[in-house]
Amino acid sequence: MASLAFRRSCAWALTLTFHQRASFLETKVTASRFAACRLKSSVLYLTRQDLPKLAYQKLKGKSPGVIFLPGYASDMNAQKALALEEFCKSLGHSFVRFDYTGCGSSEGNIKDGTIGKWKKDVLSVLDNVSEGPQILVGSSMGGWLMLLAAIARPEKIAALVGVAPAADHFVTLFNQLPLEEKRAVEEKGEWKMPSRYNEEGFYSIPYSLIKEAENHCLLNSPIPITSPVRLIHGMKDEDVPWHVSMQIADSVLSTDVDIILRKHGLHRMSEKDDIKLLVYTIDDLIDKLTTLG
């Protein structure tokens, strides 16, 4: 843990390192916020027996590939996903972005979704769409799913990059409610979870999703992941506290773990410098993995 403690103490300095290293990437990433939208890759569908079809877009290229895992109720057209696609295209590396069941262009209803079902979606993409070792990039809930997927398919994982990773999030928030509110949610079968990202000011979360999510909690025991892990978190994140990244780092068995804190970063980490940092982090990982390979 000494190495991790040192990295934590250096978290403030990492931003300076990032600005020095990322200068050659700045033009690409700045442009990607607009140019990526002009990519003419068509939506494909993964057909699965007895399961909803998954919409995805794939860019063929070298290994390691990159797969983007969106957050709750988000989709594969998120700003970070488009920026990463443009970046991977510039490097000639493969890239996959997709929609979970009930989200975006995929089949199904989001209210029928669970952490277990969305984990199966990630595994379906790993098994049937991607080729070779992959860097999973998980945003918010996608960060939780990337950990679950890495445990289930360790042989397919080259590295993990979590952006405000929301491990155990629904369960943690629900358990913080007063007892009478918990009982009301259980009786109604639905929880109106406050959110600034929905026009109504909340997401309607089925109580069944919360109960099912309890089967996938990770933070109370060692997490059997040994691949490199990078965790990027904003210290102004009011949705998923940055301490969650600390908990993940403490729990994973990997000794190659970096935590990068953005002092003024918000939950979505979608500002220009946030995306530059994400691209730099993945570029650095690709260099490291390619050298080791």
Rank of each mutant, 00 (worst) to 15 (best):
A2V: 14
L4M: 12
R7I: 06
R7V: 05
W12R: 15
W12L: 15
A13G: 12
A13E: 10
L16E: 11
F18T: 14
F18L: 14
R21S: 13
S23V: 14
L25Y: 06
K28L: 15
T30D: 12
T30W: 11
A31D: 11
S32H: 07
R33F: 12
A35H: 08
C37S: 06
L39P: 03
L39T: 13
V43F: 11
L44K: 15
L44I: 09
Y45R: 12
Y45A: 05
T47K: 15
Q49I: 14
L51I: 05
P52V: 11
P52W: 10
P52R: 03
L54D: 06
A55H: 05
A55M: 02
Y56T: 09
K58A: 05
G61Q: 09
G65C: 06
L69W: 04
A73G: 00
D75M: 07
A83P: 07
A83V: 15
L84A: 09
E85W: 13
F87M: 07
C88G: 03
G92I: 09
G92K: 02
F95R: 07
V96N: 02
V96S: 04
V96E: 03
D99C: 10
C103I: 09
G104A: 08
S106K: 06
E107V: 10
G108H: 08
I110M: 12
D112H: 12
K117R: 15
W118Q: 06
W118H: 08
K120R: 14
L123W: 00
S124Y: 02
N128K: 14
V129E: 08
G132R: 08
P133Y: 03
Q134R: 01
S140E: 10
S140F: 08
G142L: 04
G142W: 02
L145S: 03
L148E: 00
P154S: 01
P154K: 00
I157Q: 04
A159P: 06
L160W: 00
V161M: 06
V163S: 11
A166I: 10
A167P: 02
H169C: 07
F170N: 01
V171K: 05
T172Y: 04
L179R: 14
E181G: 00
K182Q: 13
A184N: 10
E186F: 12
K192C: 04
K192Q: 09
K192G: 00
R196G: 11
N198D: 15
S204H: 12
P206W: 01
Y207P: 07
Y207E: 03
S208L: 09
L209V: 09
L209E: 06
K211I: 12
E212A: 08
A213F: 07
E214A: 10
C217Q: 10
S221W: 04
P222K: 00
S227M: 10
V229K: 01
L231I: 09
L231M: 07
M235H: 01
M235G: 02
K236E: 15
K236Q: 15
W242A: 10
S245T: 02
M246K: 13
I248H: 04
A249I: 03
V252L: 05
S254I: 07
T255S: 07
D258L: 02
I259V: 12
I260R: 05
I260Y: 04
L261T: 04
G265A: 08
E271W: 13
I275E: 04
I275A: 06
I275P: 03
K276V: 11
L277N: 05
V279I: 15
Y280F: 13
Y280I: 01
D283F: 07
D284F: 11
I286E: 04
K288A: 09
T290L: 10
T290R: 09
T290Y: 01
T291R: 11
